[in-house]
Amino acid sequence: TETYKYDDKREAEKAAEEFRRRGITVTVEERNGTWVLESK
């Protein structure tokens, strides 16, 4: 599991889209005002 942090929800979702395009499952969730993207 890799974790990436973003200040902006849009950025996180854009990154998530890129991962999914490569066939990687990711989750995006907000933690304490930071958007956390996790690849499984």
Score class of each variant (00 low, 15 high):
31 R>C: 08
18 E>H: 07
34 T>N: 09
27 T>D: 04
19 F>G: 01
12 A>D: 00
3 T>F: 12
4 Y>E: 04
40 K>V: 13
9 K>Q: 10
8 D>H: 07
36 V>P: 00
27 T>P: 00
40 K>Q: 13
8 D>A: 04
22 R>D: 05
2 E>W: 15
26 V>I: 07
4 Y>N: 06
25 T>H: 13
5 K>R: 13
37 L>M: 04
39 S>F: 15
29 E>Q: 11
29 E>R: 11
7 D>Y: 14
32 N>Q: 06
38 E>T: 15
16 A>P: 00
30 E>M: 09
4 Y>W: 14
12 A>R: 00
3 T>H: 09
25 T>V: 12
3 T>C: 08
2 E>S: 12
36 V>E: 04
31 R>A: 05
31 R>T: 05
21 R>S: 08
8 D>K: 06
27 T>A: 07
3 T>D: 06
28 V>G: 00
29 E>K: 10
11 E>V: 06
10 R>W: 12
16 A>W: 03
6 Y>L: 02
40 K>I: 14
36 V>K: 02
11 E>I: 07
2 E>I: 15
35 W>R: 00
10 R>S: 11
32 N>A: 06
8 D>I: 05
28 V>K: 01
20 R>I: 07
23 G>K: 02
6 Y>P: 01
32 N>C: 10
32 N>M: 05
27 T>V: 12
19 F>K: 03
33 G>T: 02
20 R>A: 11
26 V>H: 02
31 R>S: 06
20 R>W: 08
23 G>L: 01
29 E>W: 11
30 E>Q: 10
14 K>H: 08
39 S>L: 15
37 L>F: 03
11 E>W: 04
1 T>D: 09
33 G>F: 02
35 W>T: 01
12 A>H: 00
17 E>C: 08
15 A>H: 06
10 R>P: 04
24 I>V: 10
3 T>K: 11
1 T>G: 13
22 R>S: 05
35 W>F: 07
18 E>D: 09
38 E>W: 10
35 W>Q: 00
25 T>S: 13
23 G>Y: 02
40 K>S: 13
13 E>Y: 11
37 L>E: 00
4 Y>L: 11
28 V>Y: 03
28 V>W: 03
35 W>M: 01
16 A>N: 01
10 R>I: 12
39 S>P: 13
29 E>N: 08
34 T>L: 14
27 T>E: 06
30 E>H: 11
29 E>G: 05
9 K>E: 08
1 T>C: 13
25 T>A: 13
6 Y>R: 01
21 R>E: 07
33 G>P: 01
1 T>L: 13
2 E>Q: 14
4 Y>Q: 07
32 N>F: 05
1 T>W: 15
1 T>E: 09
39 S>D: 07
32 N>W: 05
21 R>A: 09
4 Y>F: 11
20 R>Q: 07
29 E>A: 11
32 N>Y: 05
2 E>V: 15
2 E>N: 13
24 I>C: 13
40 K>A: 12
38 E>F: 14
12 A>Q: 01
4 Y>M: 10
38 E>Q: 11
25 T>P: 10
35 W>S: 01
12 A>S: 02
25 T>K: 11
13 E>K: 04
34 T>C: 08
13 E>I: 09
17 E>D: 10
11 E>Y: 04
27 T>W: 11
3 T>Y: 13
23 G>D: 03
30 E>N: 10
18 E>G: 07
17 E>Q: 08
7 D>Q: 13
29 E>F: 14
8 D>R: 04
3 T>V: 13
26 V>T: 03
24 I>P: 00
11 E>M: 09
21 R>Y: 06
17 E>A: 09
14 K>V: 09
12 A>W: 01
4 Y>A: 07
17 E>W: 05
37 L>V: 14
23 G>P: 01
23 G>F: 02
7 D>I: 12
38 E>S: 12
27 T>R: 08
31 R>Q: 09
2 E>A: 13
40 K>P: 11
20 R>M: 08
35 W>E: 01
19 F>T: 02
38 E>D: 06
17 E>T: 05
14 K>W: 07
22 R>G: 06
15 A>Q: 07
3 T>M: 12
34 T>I: 15
34 T>K: 15
26 V>D: 00
30 E>G: 03
